[in-house]
Design a binder for these strands. Structure first.
Lengths: 127, 127
DNA sequence: AGCGTTGGTTGAAGTTGTCAACGATTTATC
DNA sequence: GATAAATCGTTGACAACTTCAACCAACGCT
């Protein structure tokens, strides 16, 4: 199990540097929904970190034109995070790379892969 | 799959702060072998980071008395990293906490857990 | 002996992370 | 409706991580 996580972590870091993004930036981009802007605080919660931390991360994502801050209509304190067109494109390519099965699992037989998928489904279905 | 990694990551961070160690410090301590000191460069390789990075991480682990730098007999350039008695104790408790099955998997039926274990074994056995 | 290489450290620069304090705004309470 | 309390995002201070380039000491080779 640890080995699997280790392999996944390594691949995650490799993909991040491949796109010249830092790990938290990749995580943020993956969490954000191009279809539906969300407040900063929601991103902070998803990333398990402080509000003040996402300020900086979003700053840098905004500098690269991947994300946009928009003020919300219903509450002038909150800022909604919208993924730009370019951000959505990067995000999609990122997802493609990250959705590839990690190396050790890719070598499994088709039956094992199916069985694994079914078990994973059962593990998460009660949420 | 991503959800599983996410859950594991969250637990990992929780355990780290529980022991008042930073994530890289936990990783380092987990990699090191109390039975067999290894050179710094080997730790750097295991952590997928620069040599200069482990210098600082080991500095702080040494400050807390969890790890010791010993000069190697065969080559006076290299420094062997040895886990202290206290370090080994923390390391063991850390392993206990990290070896607990992640939340979603713990709820699986015994048959599914066995099947999962067998699949994992097959995935890694060709290494 | 001399020269290139290697192992670890140092310094600079940038990012991540937490915490406390703050300004602007909203919501609750009187 | 005015005032107080709570909320959202930002800022500043500080510690840790990360990479890179430069460096020193020590090794190995010719």
């Amino acid at each position: 199990m640890h080995e699997l996580f280790h392999a996944s972590r390594r691949r995650f870091l490799a993909v991040a540097s491949e796109f010249e993004l830092s790990p938290p930036q990749v995580r943020a981009l993956a969490v954000l929904d191009p279809e539906r802007p969300v407040p900063m605080s929601e991103l902070a919660e998803a990333l398990h970190c402080d509000n003040s931390n996402v300020t900086g991360i979003v700053d840098r994502l905004e500098d690269r034109g991947l994300v946009e801050r928009r003020s919300a209509a219903h509450d002038r304190r909150v800022k909604m995070l919208a993924v730009t067109e370019r951000g959505a494109e990067i995000r999609a390519r990122l997802a493609d790379r990250l959705d590839e099965a990690p190396e050790p699992l890719a070598r499994l037989s088709p039956e094992d892969q199916r069985a694994l998928r079914d078990i994973m489904r059962r593990a998460l279905e009660r949420d």
